[in-house]
Design a protein around this nucleic acid. Structure first.
Length: 501
RNA sequence: GCGGCGGUAGUCUAGCCUGGUAGGACGCCAGCCUGCCACGCUGGUGACCCCGGGUUCAAAUCCCGGCCGCCGCACCA
């Protein structure tokens, strides 16, 4: 049996500087990863491509990007519901020390839901029904909160604050400022790329369950009566999306429904055009990054998986080697966030629309960057006929666009190659090009393939005569001979080349 | 957090049972060689054997605790 794909990718990632555990030399805690030089380049490329795809390309609706504070005060997260919602009641057996989720235990034993009840009330239920440790029968201790948010303190007074559990909250908190400063009109969007924090009980699967991660989010603000009139919907109406409906999930063998964006709205499979628009755009986005259509699906979360105010959540799941996993969450948050923040803060967060006050409804696509990055690695990992790894990354997001290689390190080939390399770096808006003259040419091609270098530019004896070079394509291994002066243009065109298939 | 398994140079690994402080391969670096897909030669680099404690004259090896990883359970906006 060959090594699992995840192991191969983690091995490659650590060895070649894509990602590795944080504070590794001190055996750091689980759930934290640093991106290395190549991972960092990939992340930047993914973010920039996402901006172009979801923000800049959107000309009929303005989307404004902000960059908010990671530390948020207690009051803001109390209002948003996170202080209560992001806390699990836990209890420890006084005899054997096992720890249980108190709410789950109660539901399991006496089939009563204690959702929304306070810790004292939950304790009362346990005492009243004499619920004991299911493992040893011992008495259960007092109910304590387990915070899924990282708690911290501000200043000398020690004001309680938290690291934000989602980037979305800054957007709601800044809503009024953005609205007035940018003279917004509904519909419009506010986007943010940044770190979020969740103190997971047990992080797993490398980049998948992190305690610190990066989100790319958009909150689209829409008048409720306009939810079915997205101005660009015609552009995606025929785009096919794959949906795992609630009904299908309850079946023995669930089947994905393949449906056009337009039909999905008309048949009520998704709640509105705005949601359908994003499901379609996300399908296009990930397909353009090399994820096959059949390996993408949107799972309509079951009612018990979503908050009470949700108008429908659709997770974009990708078929990984270890199963279907969420990499994007799409939530119809109704007007819940703006309404509750308005109520708690006393600020008016309704806006003028068609001559009256409206509290906008919100459609939120929320992308996980680390998960996206891992997905790209998994879907681009391949091995050639000799068993050597080749990362067939989408040209657009691969970390290194070209490597300049002298065929031999003698006879002036190296000087010539170095000067070509320099000229490619010293241009306006340069891309990432590297130089390598160590080892045989074959070894250097292999090293480049392993990290997904799009093109290898080789300087040989003919270059010294007529200033032409060979350009080798990573995926086909085909070489063409071109003029050195055309290289920049060739690299740029190659970088923007769409994924085939 | 619970249970099972594991942790030896950057990577893979021998040694562990049957204590005597580590050997290989690949990589990496330097030089030679090399006229297009991990060539070859020479030299070199690199491991307080995951951490802490215990047993012992002596611990990579045996025992205990911890950390991290994998699998299962539980958890997972």
């Amino acid at each position: 049996m060959t090594k699992a794909l995840l192991d191969k990718i983690v091995d490659l990632a650590v060895r070649r500087g894509i990602f590795f555990p944080t504070a590794e030399i001190y055996h750091g805690p689980a759930g934290f990863y640093d991106l290395g030089p190549l991972g960092s380049l990939m992340k930047h490329n993914i973010i920039q491509y996402w901006r172009e795809f979801f923000i800049l390309r959107e000309t009929k609706i303005n989307i404004y990007e902000i960059d908010g504070s990671i530390i948020l005060p207690y009051t803001a997260l109390k209002a948003s519901g996170h202080v209560d919602k992001f806390t699990d009641p836990k209890t420890e057996c006084r005899r054997c020390g096992r720890i249980y989720r108190a709410d789950h235990l109660i539901e399991e034993v006496i089939s009563i839901s204690v959702e929304g009840k306070s810790l004292e009330e939950i304790e009362g239920v346990i005492a009243e029904h004499n619920i004991r440790c299911p493992s040893c029968g011992g008495e259960l201790g007092e109910i304590k909160p387990h915070h899924l948010m990282f708690k911290t303190e501000i200043g000398a007074a020690g004001e309680v604050a938290f690291l934000r559990p989602e980037t979305a909250q800054n957007i709601f908190l800044d809503f009024k400022r953005v609205y007035y400063s940018m003279r917004c009109k509904l519909p419009f969007g506010i986007a943010q790329v940044g770190r979020s924090y969740r103190n997971e009980i047990s992080p797993r699967q490398s980049l998948f369950r992190l305690r610190e991660f990066t989100q790319m989010e958009i909150e689209m603000f829409i008048a409720p009566e306009d939810l079915n009139t997205h101005p660009s919907f015609d552009e995606v109406r025929d785009v096919k999306i794959r949906i795992l409906t609630r009904e299908e999930q309850l079946k023995e063998r669930p089947e994905v429904v393949e449906i056009s964006a337009k039909d999905a709205v008309e048949e009520g499979v998704v709640p509105n055009q705005y949601m359908a628009y994003y499901l379609a755009r996300e399908t296009q986005f990930y397909m353009s990054l090399g994820i096959p259509f059949e390996s993408i699906r949107f799972r309509h979360l079951l009612p018990e998986e979503t908050p009470h105010y949700s108008g429908g959540n659709f997770d974009l799941e990708v078929r990984f080697s270890f199963g279907w996993k969420e990499i994007v969450g799409n939530a119809y948050r109704t007007d819940y966030d703006l309404s509750t923040h308005s109520r708690f803060s006393g600020e008016e967060l309704a806006v003028q629309h068609n001559g009256r006050k409206v509290t906008p409804h919100v459609i939120e696509p929320s992308f996980g960057i680390e998960r996206t990055l891992y997905a790209l690695l998994e879907f681009s990992y391949s091995e050639d006929e000799r068993g050597w790894p080749v990362l067939k990354l989408p040209r657009r997001v691969s970390p290194v666009k070209a490597a300049v290689l002298p065929l031999m390190r003698k006879d002036g080939l190296d000087e010539k190659a170095y000067s070509i390399y320099s000229s490619l770096r010293r241009v306006p808006n340069p891309c990432y090009v590297v130089y390598d003259d160590t080892g045989s040419i074959g070894r250097r091609y292999a090293r480049a393939d392993e990290i997904g270098v799009n093109l290898c530019i080789t300087i040989d004896y003919q270059t010294l005569e007529d200033d032409t070079v060979t350009v080798r394509d990573r995926d086909t291994k085909q070489q063409i001979r071109v003029k050195a002066s055309e290289l920049m243009d060739i690299i740029t065109k190659d970088t923007l080349r769409p994924v085939i298939g």
